[in-house]
Design a protein around this nucleic acid. Sequence first.
DNA 1: TAGATTGTTAATCGATTAACAATC
DNA 2: TAGATTGTTAATCGATTAACAATC
Lengths: 217, 217
Amino acid sequence: MKRNSRVSTAVIRRLPRYYRHLAELQRKGVVRISSSALGKSMGLTASQIRQDLFCFGGFGQQGYGYKVDSLKEEIGEILGINRGHTVVVVGAGNLGRALIENFRFSSNGFELLAAFDVQEKMVGSTITGIPVYHADQLEAFLAEHPVSVGLLTVPISVAQCMGERLVSSGVKGIWNFTNSEISFPDSDVVVENVHFSDSLLALSYMISQREAQEETV
Amino acid sequence: MKRNSRVSTAVIRRLPRYYRHLAELQRKGVVRISSSALGKSMGLTASQIRQDLFCFGGFGQQGYGYKVDSLKEEIGEILGINRGHTVVVVGAGNLGRALIENFRFSSNGFELLAAFDVQEKMVGSTITGIPVYHADQLEAFLAEHPVSVGLLTVPISVAQCMGERLVSSGVKGIWNFTNSEISFPDSDVVVENVHFSDSLLALSYMISQREAQEETV
DNA sequence: TAGATTGTTAATCGATTAACAATC
DNA sequence: TAGATTGTTAATCGATTAACAATC
């Protein structure tokens, strides 16, 4: 069933979108969808959707389309949603707290185990039920609990250092919100960056283009 | 100087990274850099960097390389950092507050003017100096102050609706943190999505791949 | 069965990489 | 000047789109 020899990052980046759209369709009670209908609602070509899914196997039925439920399940499986992944938050400042309180870790297949910070007033407290430990206890905690991903929301100045501590304690991935470029050359950890400023600057470019266009018209 | 007939999104997405790296080099006191040195530090080929910059004009000197200061300036100009862009935050919950308090709007060329929320206890207060108004006053405020970008951090249920109010009041771009797909077919507003869950699921895929590999080895 | 729609291969398009003349 | 490195065109590679036979 799995073809998958080497799936391009372009495809990988679309998988979560498929998953999200299918979940939405499911909520609306849609049972089946064709590649062309899904493409129309997502702004992709039917061909691309079939090609993308083809990387992983045949999930549809000829003449019928795709069953929303089972396609969503399959994509969830591919994304690793049922693999029992776990996550800890390193840095319980504003952003860390916002993510702990608002982000639906569990619906993305992650169990949030704990948060770490250096501020004494936070240590020992809980945030929506999640215990906050002192950063000193990071290694001890990771030795006891297998953690898949470390979510980094610390100040830039300590980003690389805390990242290294997570990596040497065996996390598989780092979800980097620090707006700094961190890297771990001698390890095979996966770093996923969320660079707010890159996102805003790309938006800035696009609206500047439009403005410039209007000015010359 | 500007060639720019139609710059691919791949290039546009790299521009903020260049800007960030050049700012970093500047801070370190580096005066000049060659495409090959910059490529090495960013994980790109020298050829790609020259090709990317070639879209906008010749910023380097043959036999010498690029001056860090002026290249950073040029890219900042391209990104629209000096265009006097403004932004308002719609939704001053945890995430909105975290962004107001932590995100360096001004170093990305944006002036943060105000925040809006419906919670009575927030209305009238300020967050690090930024006034919080009631969402009812959104249109009135936008009529008075030209706003380039609306930063959406409202619950999913009202995302589309608040987006439409921003668009009909004339914002040029929407920076969408709501984890929902919003669209404005009859307008030429630019929507930039920050989908945390897409990012985490891509990471989930990548670590799941590694895990599966280890299991079969 | 006829119609619809996938799975899958082939064709096209665009992005990246290579090459090298221009020139600082 | 000689050496280095860009600007810019050409070649390659990969991703998207088109096409259509298979089949539900």
